[in-house]
């Protein structure tokens, strides 16, 4: 009998009544408060709510409006920039963590810390820290005398990216650090012994081996950034992203149709990105 055969598991045949009782409240919530509202948003965005025939007018209106066009672009740019930043930051952290035991624990703690901070609070704290008269600029200008004038970070595009990296890079960071930590060092030593220089070892051996972890983490960072609302709400004074735009449609006149259109577009793009990245990753892993 093969190991792990399903029949190794003795499970009394599930009683349908109890099974239904256990699952139905949760399913009711998911269907009633998630699937139904999303479906409603789709039908709203198609103009079906008022008993009219389906129309893509709202989507056309959305796409022809430069403001929403830019918001869409901003949202994607922010998500990609944050993901790229997260991967670039994670790799040296991974090397640092595996360099010695002394570094491993502090690095892991530092990487985990932002996850415990509510996103709204993170956004606010970063805004204060990177404000023109904030601590960051004080140190650069007054203590280190590296600059004569403070940098404008908070409320700017780079500030938005930095804030998103601060809060969302740990998903990538933790996976990359553990991938580098558990990587068989003999593989790198073997590559080096054949005469590859450190850069070649990194590019040809280490990077391909940690790529699946970096991509998986990257997807989490990407999705979190793509859908984030609190950070651009606080930080993105000059940069509008889709989530904030949808919120403003509601608060500024209960325009549920436009808001619905925006969040449906976001959901479609996010799911498409997830599916696309997962496909790319599967191909990578298979290869």
């Amino acid at each position: 009998m093969p190991q792990g055969h399903p029949s190794r598991r003795y499970v009394a045949s599930p009683n349908l009544f109890w099974l239904a009782l256990a699952l139905s409240p949760g399913l009711l919530i998911v269907v009633g408060l998630v699937a139904y509202p999303l479906g409603l948003a789709v039908s709203n965005s198609l103009g079906l709510a008022r008993g009219q025939t389906a129309t893509i007018a709202h989507y056309l209106a959305f796409l022809s409006d430069p403001r929403s066009y830019w918001a869409l672009l901003n949202t994607f740019a922010l998500a990609f920039a944050t993901t790229a930043g997260a991967i670039i930051l994670s790799i040296p952290l991974g090397y640092l963590a595996r360099a010695s035991r002394r570094f491993a624990t502090p690095v892991r703690l530092l990487v985990t810390l932002p996850l415990a901070v509510p996103v709204l609070i993170a956004a606010y704290a970063l805004t204060l820290f990177f404000a023109e008269n904030g601590l960051f600029n004080s140190i650069l200008v007054r203590v280190l005398h590296l600059l004569s004038e403070p940098l404008t970070i908070s409320y700017s595009w780079p500030g938005l990216v930095i804030a998103c990296i601060w809060r969302f890079f740990p998903y990538t960071g933790l996976l990359v650090i553990s991938a580098l930590g558990t990587l068989d060092r003999n593989l790198e030593d073997a590559a080096a012994s054949t005469g590859a220089n450190p850069l070649q070892v990194f590019r040809r051996v280490t990077l391909p081996l940690i790529a699946p972890a970096a991509l998986t983490g990257g997807i989490l960072t990407f999705v979190s950034t793509f859908g984030t609302f609190s950070i651009p709400l606080i930080m993105g004074r000059s940069t509008e992203v889709l989530s904030v735009m949808a919120y403003r449609k509601v608060t500024g006149g209960f325009d549920w149709q436009s808001a619905s259109t925006i969040v449906v577009i976001m959901a479609v793009f996010q799911i498409a990105t997830l599916v696309g990245l997962r496909g790319a990753m599967n191909r990578w892993v298979v290869r």
Partner: peptide, 11 residues
């Protein structure tokens, strides 16, 4: 799977 704000606007 869907953006958090989509859930929010939906409900």
């Amino acid at each position: 799977l869907v953006p958090y704000i989509s859930l929010g606007i939906g409900i």
